[in-house]
């Protein structure tokens, strides 16, 4: 690739600057790094509060649905696997990556929908944002994760559409992957710390 100089001309005599990691992937990695710290902050806050609380869990509050969520966790992990598959296929035969990519999106969407259903049930049982510190933390942590999931799904859909239109640069897929793996990867941790 040629390098543009200030005059707008291409300077073909020079080698391009080497990119260790494509810039978009690098940016996404840095972004994800802060996000990891964000969730680490929330999780440790939750743990500290839990360990200092006199009575835990708070009385008169419903239990969290551990088993259903375990199933949902599996669905999310499957979505991550589908995306990894898409990555492998994309490297050799880009056009055939559409199916696994779509599978990843649909599984991810199922996860978010299932979570939403779970929330409706919990709210009906009296666990709300303001009912107790458990409720506050539960909806904040899980809700923030859901928000990330939705955003990351948006990026995946965008990648899928570009693929459908013909050409998806590996760096875009790479950035989308980093984001989605983060969403998938952090969830078991949240499940472990919040539900169990």
């Amino acid at each position: 690739m040629a390098v543009r100089t200030a005059s707008g001309l291409r300077d073909v005599s020079r080698p391009p600057r080497p990119q260790l990691v494509p810039s978009s992937v690098m940016a996404m990695l840095i972004f994800v790094f802060t996000e990891v710290m964000l969730f680490a902050g929330l999780i440790s806050a939750f743990s500290i509060m839990r360990s200092t609380a006199l009575i835990w869990p708070p009385p008169n509050q419903p239990r969290l649905p551990v088993a259903e969520t375990a199933f949902n966790t599996a669905v999310l992990l499957a979505s991550g696997v589908a995306l990894a598959l898409a990555h492998r296929v994309h490297r050799r035969r880009p056009e055939r990556a559409r199916l696994p990519l779509l599978a990843a999106v649909l599984l991810g969407a199922f996860f978010v929908g299932f979570q939403g259903r779970e929330w409706v049930g919990l709210i009906a049982q009296g666990l709300t944002l303001t009912s107790s510190s458990l409720g506050s933390f539960f909806y904040l942590i899980v809700g923030l994760h859901a928000l990330h999931a939705v955003a990351a799904l948006g990026v995946l859909v965008y990648a899928w559409r570009r693929l459908a239109q013909g050409w998806l640069p590996p760096s875009v897929l790479g950035a989308a992957e980093v984001f989605w793996y983060f969403v998938v990867g952090i969830w078991p941790l949240l499940y472990w710390r919040v539900y169990l």
């Binding site: 690739m1 390098v3 543009r4 005059s7 707008g8 810039s23 978009s24 940016a27 875009v172």
Partner: peptide, 18 residues
């Protein structure tokens, strides 16, 4: 996502000569 754009320092199309 705006991040997904390729690095502009390599993008020859931008015509902002001084």
């Amino acid at each position: 996502m705006a991040q997904s754009h390729p690095a502009p320092s390599h993008a020859p199309h931008e015509a902002h000569g001084h």
